[in-house]
Amino acid sequence: MAAAGGGAAAGRAYSFKVVLLGEGCVGKTSLVLRYCENKFNDKHITTLQASFLTKKLNIGGKRVNLAIWDTAGQERFHALGPIYYRDSNGAILVYDITDEDSFQKVKNWVKELRKMLGNEICLCIVGNKIDLEKERHVSIQEAESYAESVGAKHYHTSAKQNKGIEELFLDLCKRMIETAQVDERAKGNGSSQPGAARRGVQIIDDEPQVQSGGGGCCSSG
């Protein structure tokens, strides 16, 4: 189908799964809550707190449904990582700029993700809490060059001041769309073959039962 390459054929939407990783207390939850809160929807009876959130976006006419999976960051739950990140299209790896140790944890996750999933997953490394710039313990240069060296993008955010978050998610979505399009092209026109689902990228037909109200716009500011 011609639609497969173009991706944004009318009546279709991308569905992406994004997993949030990072040590406890780095602000993963605040970050995603900040991003989703204006869409936080209590009409949807089962919407529970901030461990699982969804967001709808429209990026240049391409509709995207994001499912954001939070993970427990405590070291003792490290082993559960794979059941969450498997089949994710993107991973957001969060550290606290005032906590060097949390940056080290991010590096460990990157290693593990690259080993398990290769280059198919879009990685974002996020230095959160830039409102605490004075207490910074992770140098910007070190973090950015590390990110580049592993093929990840680096972002600076403050969940508290709502800085950098919109850009982070928008950018990630664009990259996931690109990856999905490359995938589609590589597969030729086999749009709905099982292989398509291997990484969890699903191009699904649009259905009227779109759950949250609200328009499909990505601005949340």
Binding site: L20, K28, T29, V32, S51, D70, G73
Partner: peptide, 10 residues
């Protein structure tokens, strides 16, 4: 207080 996975899983 909104709870994420850090709080919920335990």
């Amino acid at each position: 207080k909104p709870y994420g996975a850090d709080d919920f899983l335990p």
